[in-house]
Design a protein around this nucleic acid. Sequence first.
DNA 1: ATACACGATAAAAACGTTTAACTTTCTTGT
DNA 2: ACAAGAAAGTTAAACGTTTTTATCGTGTAT
Lengths: 344, 344
Amino acid sequence: MQRPTIKTIAQETGLSIATVSKALKHSPQVRPETRAIVIEAAERVGYELNMHGVQLRTGKTYQVAAIMTAPGPKQNEWEGVEYAQLLSGISWALEDSPYRVSLYAVRNFEESQAVIKQIVSLKKADGIIISGTRADDPRIRTMQAADFPFVTYGTSIHNAPHAYVDADNEQMIRVSMARLTERGHRRIALLNPLSDLSYGITRLEAYKRALEVAGLAYDPALVAHGRLTPAFGRENVLTMSELSNAPTAYICANEASALGAFSGFHERGLVHGRDAVINATDDLNVSQYFAPPITTYYLPISEPSSLLGAYILRRMEGEPPEALQTLLMPNLIERCDDRLNPNR
Amino acid sequence: MQRPTIKTIAQETGLSIATVSKALKHSPQVRPETRAIVIEAAERVGYELNMHGVQLRTGKTYQVAAIMTAPGPKQNEWEGVEYAQLLSGISWALEDSPYRVSLYAVRNFEESQAVIKQIVSLKKADGIIISGTRADDPRIRTMQAADFPFVTYGTSIHNAPHAYVDADNEQMIRVSMARLTERGHRRIALLNPLSDLSYGITRLEAYKRALEVAGLAYDPALVAHGRLTPAFGRENVLTMSELSNAPTAYICANEASALGAFSGFHERGLVHGRDAVINATDDLNVSQYFAPPITTYYLPISEPSSLLGAYILRRMEGEPPEALQTLLMPNLIERCDDRLNPNR
DNA sequence: ATACACGATAAAAACGTTTAACTTTCTTGT
DNA sequence: ACAAGAAAGTTAAACGTTTTTATCGTGTAT
């Protein structure tokens, strides 16, 4: 038994395939009664739209490309793990639409650039979702030049307006810094993502402004940029804690680097809350299981991810990008007093 | 300017589209000289195969469906994070093929069953990769009944032979247990995945056999089944450590539950190496950053994931499933002596 | 010389859908 | 009563590819 097509329904109902097609798409050109007949027949024979026919005819792919930058197969660092939740969130947001998530894993920025050019020029998808945006991102320019729908996870600084979702990094750092300086911290380290990433820049600038407000000097030795792995967090605690004027607080850009920072504490014999404290941003809700639990900004990854999915749908329907821009403010979870206490 | 098709090449060369099509697919029906002309013209005009035409004509989708079971959007536990690396590994394995990874996020087993039935009956993909296999897995039966190519991450126990990749859980538990009993442990807790999962059963049975070998009694109070979140690890340490005869070693099925176990230690004031030890399986290489680092079985997730990709390709080409079965043995990394030492 | 096979190419049909253009029937305003 | 227009269908073409079948020389055996 062959899979039924609109032709099957046409024969079944005595109508033409054109009418069947129109009826199924709720075209006003067909009478409600006729439509009812078609729908009934469709259900009776178990009809399901064959996307291949649609794709060929319309040129639409009904694919949303998710570009996932992950380090090569050989590097097995704990990095980018939040991508799993990000992808499933996007996937769920598209659930009731005809769109599917098509995965493009790339190793680095250059590859992502090449992949995006390909998707755009060969129209391998109808929309693109990228992350890891740079201050001036050439991928964004590529997609804008081709008028191709896309949403970014992360803002850009020098690009023309586009749809994005991001955490409010500026506010996070501002509040974090105020809170720490209030509690007596004078030497605060910033463990930041790679310096070409847009949110790295945002965070650094907010950090500098906060120092100024608190009347503290900016010391480049307390700022590190790198891939946000546990190794990165560990290395920097090892180095910075040896400074003559070591930091008493570390602000980690994610949970992985925070875990690594703890590892550095352990190695150096530092006690959290006595010698220094760690604050972090966490979108996997894992910092509460650290020993001790630490103060974090928590933004459940499901929120930005479902927004990304919703926004790409609306973008593909032609909604202007200006209406699709959101900065989400993570929740401050104070698991720790974060004042240094010499008796601990 | 329109995108060039085989028709463009046909006009360009004066050949028919049939010949062009055959030439491009290296059919023996066309002379080498003719083929050379076609290839040259194709490159000159920048021809790229349009998959939609192929898909409609051949019925092949060139999609590999990756079924990803992740808890619903509302639950933001640190679970399933290794999926990101798993997906990127699969995606890379398919890189040089015409196949793409199409993501299907599901919330639970029932949904995955429904999704698989749909993919199989509506031929929404050419192959399927699933994980979280059960002892007797109905999804496997569905796919086998339809003679649909698939590979599982995880073995099954009662199903007919199929292509799979898995870690060697039996050996892992056997060696782990021998090592711990050798070091004097008499009360060993097993933090296991959900009991309907195939590898949960494998691990439990290996655990029981190891107890027997060591002449130790099986105590159900030392075995827990559940979703492998940090919360799970923590809860079980909290409970088990209160037993009159508390365990001196915890074997955790993944790094998330191990992290949670540490959190339980901290809560109860237990010291790792003095009161008890934690061993784990880890495919993200994160246990080395625990404080202290713990002994783990480490299997870089890139290995099984690239195998999964390679196997589904071979399976779709018709290779029999019996040739595509691999148990990978993780590396034992001893970061800790794991003997209890009261002076620590 | 004639039939035959063979090698290389062309013609045509098909996959399932959408949509522009057309036809027929019915309604409506004058 | 009649032209104009709307409403509801139908016809046919098109998207890009593969594949079956047909065509046409050309070389070979009888």
